[in-house]
C-alpha cells in the first residue's frame, strides 16, 4: 500500500494498516533541511525539498504546498515582505477602503508570481513522485482571504456593520479561489486545503449568514472538479459545526482544543477528522510517551475516519524524536 493508496482508502472508508499521517510543516521543515522560512515561502524549490524530506524521513502520506496566508493576497496586488524566520508580512492591504471593492481584479494564477509558485510546487511533486503521495494544494477560504485583503480588524468589524459589502467581497474572493483551485487540480493536486482560520473568531450566526454560503460554494466547486477538500480552521470551531457539517468537506482539521469525540458525533462518518495534539505543549515540549498516548486517544475518539496531525503546524524547534513519535504507524484496530 503506497502512502497515497492508504490516504485514499481512509477517505473511501476502506480498511488500512495504519492511520495516514498528514501533519502540516512549514518553518520546521525549512529549518530541517538547513534553509529558512523566508526561502520556503518564496521559492517552491525549497518548499518541495523540505516537504519531501519530511515525508521520506517521517512517513507522511501527503505532500503539502502550504506556506503562509498571502499568496492570493499578493495576487490581488499586496506587497509582501519575506522574513528569514517569521511569517511573510503583508505591507499594505489591497482593500484599505471598503468602497473600492469594484477596483479589485481577480488574479490570473499564472501571472501572479506567488500564486504561480504554489502551482510549480504541485507540478514538481507530480513529476518527481508520481502517485506515491497525496498532493495538497491550498486556497484561502472566503473569510480568511477577505480579511487579508481588507485587514483583519477592519474586516471583522465590517462583518457587523457592512454585511452586504462583505458578502460582495467574499464573492470575489471565492471566484478567485475557485479559479486558483481548478488550476492546482489540473496540475495534479488531488486534495485542496481550504484555510479559513478567521472563522473561529466570529459567531455562529455571522458565519451562517455571511461566510457559510461562500464557503459552501467554494467547496462545491472544488468537489465538482473531483478533488478532496481538507478544511483547516485554527482554533475552536464547535460553534460553527451546525453549519460547517453541511459543507461537503472530506477532511476536517481539528485544532488541539477541539473535542474529537464531540466532532465525531456531529460530522458524518465519511468526514475524516485530522489532529489534534497540542502543537506546542504536546508536541514541541511534550514527551514521546505522552505523544503516543494522545494520538492513540485521538484515533480512538475519531474512529476509522482519522488521520494523524498536530492541531496546527508542527512548531519549529520540535525535536526529530517527537515528530518521529507522532508519525510512528498507528495501527487501525
Amino acid at each position: 500500500m503506497t502512502p497515497f493508496q492508504r490516504y485514499q482508502a481512509v477517505l473511501r472508508g476502506e480498511p488500512v494498516d495504519f492511520s495516514p499521517r498528514i501533519p502540516i510543516v512549514m518553518q520546521y521543515a525549512a529549518e530541517l533541511i538547513g534553509s529558512n522560512y523566508g526561502a520556503f515561502a518564496s521559492d517552491y524549490n525549497v518548499l518541495t525539498k523540505a516537504n519531501l524530506h519530511c515525508a521520506e524521513r517521517f512517513g507522511f502520506e501527503q505532500l503539502s504546498t502550504i506556506s503562509d496566508p498571502y499568496r492570493e493576497t499578493a495576487g490581488f496586488g499586496a506587497p509582501i515582505k519575506f522574513h528569514e524566520n517569521a511569517v511573510p508580512e503583508c505591507l499594505e492591504h489591497p482593500l484599505a477602503d471598503l468602497d473600492d471593492i469594484s477596483s479589485l481584479t481577480i488574479p490570473d494564477p499564472w501571472e501572479a508570481p506567488r500564486m504561480r509558485d504554489r502551482m510549480e510546487a504541485i507540478r514538481f511533486y507530480r513529476e518527481h513522485t508520481g502517485d506515491q503521495y497525496s498532493v495538497l494544494g491550498w486556497v484561502e477560504g472566503p473569510g480568511a482571504l477577505a480579511a487579508d485583503l481588507r485587514g483583519v480588524s477592519d474586516f471583522l468589524m465590517d462583518l457587523l456593520e457592512e454585511p452586504e459589502a462583505c458578502a460582495e467581497l467574499m464573492k470575489i474572493c471565492v471566484d478567485a479561489n475557485i479559479r486558483y483551485a481548478k488550476e492546482q487540480i489540473k496540475l495534479g493536486a488531488d486534495t485542496i486545503g481550504v484555510g479559513d482560520a478567521i472563522c473561529s473568531q466570529i459567531s455562529g450566526a455571522v458565519y451562517e449568514d455571511l461566510i457559510w454560503p461562500e464557503e459552501k460554494r467554494l467547496v462545491d466547486a472544488i468537489k465538482a472538479e473531483g478533488a478532496t477538500v481538507r478544511m483547516h480552521i485554527c482554533g475552536q470551531t464547535k460553534h460553527l459545526w451546525p453549519k460547517l457539517k453541511e459543507v461537503p468537506i472530506d477532511i476536517l482539521d481539528c485544532d488541539h482544543m477541539v473535542d474529537m469525540t464531540a466532532a465525531r458525533q456531529v460530522f458524518p462518518a465519511h468526514v475524516v477528522l485530522a489532529g489534534n495534539i497540542d502543537p506546542v505543549s504536546g508536541l514541541r515540549f511534550g514527551k514521546p510517551e505522552d505523544i503516543v498516548e494522545k494520538m492513540r486517544a485521538c484515533q480512538s475518539e475519531a474512529g476509522s475516519g482519522f488521520m494523524v496531525a498536530a492541531g496546527c503546524e508542527i512548531p519549529p524547534g520540535t525535536s526529530e524524536e517527537n515528530v518521529q513519535t507522532l508519525c510512528q504507524p498507528l495501527p487501525v484496530a
Binding site: S153, L156, M157, L159, L160, E161, Q201, I202, S203, V206, H239
Partner: peptide
Amino acid sequence: ANEIFVPEVLVAAR
C-alpha cells in the same frame, strides 16, 4: 463566556 466573539469586542472597543 463565548457569548460574543472578536467582531463584537472590536466594535465595542471602537
